[in-house]
Design a protein around this nucleic acid. Sequence first.
DNA 1: TGCTGCGCACATG
DNA 2: CATGTGCGCAGCA
Length: 535
Amino acid sequence: MSEIKYKNQILAAIDHLRSRKSRPDINRICKFMLKCYKVTPKDTKADLKRCLKEKSIYKVDYKDNVSYRNAAKWRKKSTQNNKMSATVATSERRIITSAIATLIYQDQSYLENGIAFDDLVRVAASQESKYSKKQLETIINKELSSGSLVKLPNGTLALGPADHDGDSSDSFKFEYNDSNTKMTSSANSSCRSSPQRTRGRPKKRGGGTSSNSMHSNSQNAGVRVGERRKMAKKVFDPSDNNVPSKRKRGRPIGSLNKSTIKKRLMIAGKDKEDTPLSESQQSLDGSGDEMEHDEPIPHETSGGVCSVCLVQKPRGSNDRLVECRDCNNKAHLSCLQSGSGILKPRPDNTWQCPHCKTCVVCCETNDAGILTVCSICSDAYHALCHSPRIPERLKAWDQWECNNCLESRPTVVGSPTTHPNNIDYSTKTATLDPFLKPHELDRVQTKLSENVPIDVSIPDISNWNVDNVYDYFLEHFPEAAPILREQEFDGQALSMACRADIVRGLGLPLGPALALYRIIVKLQTRKDDWRMCWG
DNA sequence: TGCTGCGCACATG
DNA sequence: CATGTGCGCAGCA
């Protein structure tokens, strides 16, 4: 049921970056996703995380920076004993996955429709001249049997999951649409297309084959117009004078880029106590992994300008810059802590800038409505998403506390508070777990509902089929009826639907979605209590 | 200015 | 040694 929505796009992003010899790090992946698929960094990161969990993508630390690997291509490296066969399989696999990435990159409809066998062979052949079509077909078949590729019921192909078998069904989920998509003519897709080369180093560079400026796929018929063909002449650079004369490009021998050096120092100072390398930098968090939310490490960063005070880094020896969880905005921790409302960092010192801050209920940003931020836990809510609804004329924004925080207070019962949202429901909180987290809202609501008697006028949906659901909603919420039917919601499915399923999963605008959710909660509980949803 | 291709130093097995 | 990786550069739109 819970498919990783952007998995294939993320895989394509990783493949694309790798094919450009760029590090597939979180920033580049997010950037690519945003540009090519209009997927926000937040969603990208969320799905990337799921992919990591699912092991369809691996997170690796390579050269002291975080990279992400397409597990379908990258597997076996460290575990495979049979080196030779693994190597062969990997290089063959690369041809195929590279072709897939190219196809998807050029035409996103492949994500929807799967990739026809013939298309794949053709593109792979165009990218890799050393294999005949016949051989490529064999390779594809091998990939199919190994699970790296999966064949969909309709005959199209898709990337399989990672190494581990079992959940190949989870990888792609297409309906076949028998399109014989033209690949070579799709040069003008929404993104600039790029020819996918065979990745890594082609066997032996320059070893008798054509020069590198010629090896590229000019036969790929204009996949990328204006591809650079000519390498730059070497230019004299005084700074090169200690460097063997053969190179100009790339890193100077023995040098690393600044960030790598910095990170190395940091890591040396922090992680590897065995190497007594650095005495500075220890206060910095050099994780370099902008995505690790599950670690309690604040998102500190070593450089940049504070978005709040607009001052560059050193404002005080211990005033560290914190980076937004989801973008590159940075701010001094002190600026955030002294700031108000939406600026405040979370208690664990992670921070989302105002642009990235999302409502914890509907996961939409400020764009979907004004967010109110809890002064305790820093969770943000839309007025309608919070239960109970946040009063519109709330004055003391800084003092507002979300329901969860109020309920988490052991002393809340009978203790009059001045918080504007502290309304009658506080009297019920005695029975609630004082350590509830915001995302456990649903549980809170369930508990709340225990105090409300069942309303027999509300139908029991447990045995409803899709048509029953359709009929009911036709009467009570006609707008949603066809959508629910299309999604095959029967009584069971409705009973299990959570807020996110409804608010985010049906493609309805927020308002109608919330209204629909209220009806569904009513049906789920057979109780009509606004506190279970919103005001 | 941002994306791209890619030489080649470096990492890894 | 073979191969994977990606920095940092130059070309291009």
